[in-house]
Amino acid sequence: MSEKLSLKIEARHDALSDITAAVEDLGQRENWGADLVFKVNLALEEMGLNIMDYGLDGGELEIELTSNTDALTIEITDNGRPFDPLNDAPEHDVTSELEDRAVGGLGIHLTRTVMDEMSYRRENGRNHLTMVARRD
């Protein structure tokens, strides 16, 4: 089983429902299981909104999902200013006390935990964020 899906998404928060619908359809065709669908939606939302909020002023995101038997690869690209969501956002401290807890950085922390690999590169004036979730 293998399938590649490309989406162009307007940089608006309400575009999330289009991403979710596409992920659920692909997950069903590719037999991902509920847990993997959840992880992929979480990673796409956290990183997608991060890029929309901090890397872009309008415009669009391109999302490419490659599903095969051993892994699922997500690539998000955009032509915004150089923005590395892995390092340009603060790390979340999960041990801090509730009252002192910063709300920033939680999305990155969640995504790093549910994805098996994450990498960023700037190429030809575009940001490329690649994330891999292995199927086990």
Binding site: E45, L98, L106
Partner: peptide, 19 residues
């Protein structure tokens, strides 16, 4: 069925309000 950091933030704000 699903929650992201945006939803967790709301729960955290609720915890603080209730405290």
């Amino acid at each position: 069925t699903y929650i992201s950091s945006a939803g967790l933030r709301v729960i955290l704000l609720t915890v603080k309000m209730l405290r």
